[in-house]
């Protein structure tokens, strides 16, 4: 298709539930259950939803860190699930990931320099001198100093570690970066620094982001478009400004009502969702959100609404609009 760097088509990931030695398969967790979206060059697609709705799994499927149960992911029009190990290895130079936990995402036994050099060594880029040079450039780019290179991860704060992770992801000059809640583990004061860095880098290096977060407030500043996920599905996807102005899906409305509004003039009614998120092993029939939906209708219990366009760039999966 035209202009899309990445296209995700009806991807599913079901994790088998293993109980004991004997019973081979006691059902499965439908972590991602038919997700489709596309990401254009240079844009940021935000993915939001409550814990456990399948955001990270989607991110890992996009990078083929997990094998899908079914579906396709096209990166520059190539189905990445059809690539051989070596072709996939080559493609990994173009797609990288930044993780949520800055403590677990860096090998504690390697110096910062060794961590950032790793991608260059894996892909056999440059000699030892040019690699060192590249490390210095990368450290500089993310706002660290070259003398930091000889230190170990535990000598850094969470925000600095996240910068090291960003430097590692950027070392290969990727086109797409999946940011899996890159600031949720950081202090609020540090969050905006790291977010600003990510946005500057995007401008400078023409990066495309998939930005995962569980609240809409973080995603708001960084995303061009936002997809809202619930129980392994995308329920609404739209330009972020429009979605913030006028969310259509009752679930998005509830999420949005939890975001504090800076302008006291605007009165937003706080919608409090009742009940727990149903288990992804056994999602409700019909619309997955109907058990908690304040606007539930009869049809919602019976029939699953499809994600349909309601206007040019606005898609929503809700019977209210169909």
């Amino acid at each position: 298709m035209s202009g899309a760097l990445l296209e995700v088509k009806d991807v599913k990931k079901h994790f088998p539930i293993k109980r004991g030695l004997m019973s081979k398969n006691a059902g499965c967790i439908k972590a991602v259950d038919g997700v489709s979206f596309s990401v254009h060059k240079g844009e940021t697609l935000g993915l939001v939803g409550e814990s456990g709705c399948g955001k990270s799994t989607t991110g890992r499927l996009v990078l083929r860190l997990l094998e899908p149960t079914s579906g396709e992911v096209l990166f520059e029009d190539k189905n990445i699930y059809r690539l051989s190990f070596n072709q996939m290895r080559q493609l990994r130079r173009d797609m990288q990931i930044i993780f949520q936990d800055p403590y677990a995402s860096l090998n504690p036994r390697l110096t910062v320099e060794d961590i950032i050099i790793e991608p260059l060594v894996i892909h056999g880029i440059g000699d030892s001198h040019s690699r060192r040079q590249r490390v210095k450039e990368m450290l500089d780019l993310v706002g660290l100093s070259s003398y930091h290179g000889s230190r170990y991860p535990h000598e850094f704060s969470g925000g600095q570690r996240q910068r090291i992770g960003i430097a590692r992801a950027l070392a290969l000059n990727p086109k797409l970066i999946v940011c899996d809640e890159p600031v949720s583990a950081l202090d609020v004061s540090i969050q905006s620094q790291v977010l600003n860095l990510l946005m500057q880098l995007q401008d400078m290096l023409k990066l495309t982001y998939i930005f995962i977060a569980h609240g809409l407030n973080v995603v708001k500043h960084v995303s061009d478009r936002v997809g809202v996920m619930y129980l392994g599905k995308i329920v609404e996807i739209a330009d972020s400004e429009e979605l913030y102005r006028n969310a259509m899906h009752p679930y998005s409305q509830a999420l949005l009502s939890a975001v504090p509004v800076p302008d006291p003039e605007i009165k937003r009614e706080r919608i409090i969702l009742t009940g727990d998120v149903p288990s992804p092993a056994n999602p409700p029939t019909g619309c997955r959100f109907h058990t908690r939906c304040p606007q539930c209708m009869d049809i919602c219990r019976l029939e699953e609404p499809a994600l349909r366009p309601v206007s040019d760039k606005y898609m929503v999966a809700c019977h209210k609009y169909q």
Partner: peptide, 22 residues
């Protein structure tokens, strides 16, 4: 299960490199 191992996979490292180096 640590993310630094997953990061290695994302970078394209082979299993033996991950096992012996990381």
């Amino acid at each position: 299960e640590k993310e630094f191992v997953e990061a290695e996979k994302a970078l394209g490292a082979g299993n033996l490199r991950i096992i012996f180096k990381h």
